[in-house]
Amino acid sequence: MTTTAPAPARTPPRAAGRRRRPGVAHLGRRDTAVLAAMLGVPLLLSLALVWGPALLSVALSFTRWNGVGELTDAVPVGLENYRQVVTNYPPFWPALQHNVVWLVVFLVLATPTGLLLAVLLDKELRGTRVYQSAIFLPVVLSLALVGFIWQLVYSRDQGLLNAVLGTDVDWVGDSSINLWAALLAASWRHVGYVMVLFLAGLKGVDPALKEAAALDGAGEVQVFRHVTLPSLAPTSVVVLVITVIEALRAFDLVYVLNRGRNGLELLSVLVTDNIIGEASRIGYGSAVATILLVVSLGVIVPYLVVVLRERRGAS
C-alpha cells in the first residue's frame, strides 16, 4: 500500500490536551455490561451459527451418515470420504478448476470493471443516477431470477442471443463454452455490486485532494493512481474479500442454468448435491464443504494478514 494516502486521522494535538481518551478502566459498570452484551451476543451467535456448524461439518466429513436419525449414528470412516472425493468423483476436479477460473475472472475482469464504472459514474454526468440504477439492478434481483433471465438469453432454439447473432451456438449445453456464458451472467451482476461499493468509497474521497493534485499538474490518470486509488484502499479490502467469497460460493446461477453439471460444476453445487436431498451423503458432502472452506481460508487469510500488517506498519 502506498504512503501517499491522506494521513490517518491522528488525534489533533489540540484535542489531545483537552480530553483524555477514555480507556476500559474508566468505564462504569453499566458501560461494561452494555459492552459485554454488545460483544457477547454477536460472539455467541457467531459461535453457535457459524463456527459451530462449520466445525461440525468438518467433523462430519470424517464419517459416513445418511442424515437420518441421531448424529451419533454417523460411522467414523477416517479419510475415506476425502479419498473418494479426490479419486472417485469425476465432477470434483472440474469443479475445483471452475471455482478457480471463476475467482480469476472476478478478480481480473469483473471487479476492475466495477471500479471503472464507479469512477466514471462518480463524475457529475447527466443521468448518472439512471446508469447507476441500471447497473445495480441485477444485484437486487435474486440470482435464481437472474439465472432465469439468462436462460431466456442463452436458450439455443429460442434464445435472444442466437436470434440476434443469427447463430446456432449451444451456450448452455456446450461444455467448452458454457462456463464463459455463465461467467458473463455472473459478472453482469458482480460488476454492479462492486460498483456500488466503490461509489460509496469514492464519496469519501476529499475533492480538495484531487483539485490540489490537478493544480500541481497531475493528469486524470495520475490523479486516479496517486490520489483516488489510495484513498479507496479501505473499500478495496472489503471489495476483494467480497469478490473472493462471491466467486467461491457461486451457486444459484449455474444451478438454474443446468443444475451445475456438464461444464458448470462448482464446489458449492457438489456440496448441495450430496448434502441436501433424500438419502443424503452428509459425510461425503461435508468433505467437499471442508475442502471449499480450506480453499476459501487459503485465499482470504493470507490476504487479510498482509493487509492488516501493512496497515499496522503504516499507522
Binding site: A54, L56, S57, S142, A144, G147, I282
Partner: peptide, 27 residues
Amino acid sequence: GAAVPLARRTFLGGALGAGGLAALAGC
C-alpha cells in the same frame, strides 16, 4: 419453473452464507 430452486435457495443461502458450509442440513 423456478419454484424448487427458489425454495432451496432460502435454505442454502443461509447454510452456505454462514461460512461456506452446509452442515446445517443435518440439524
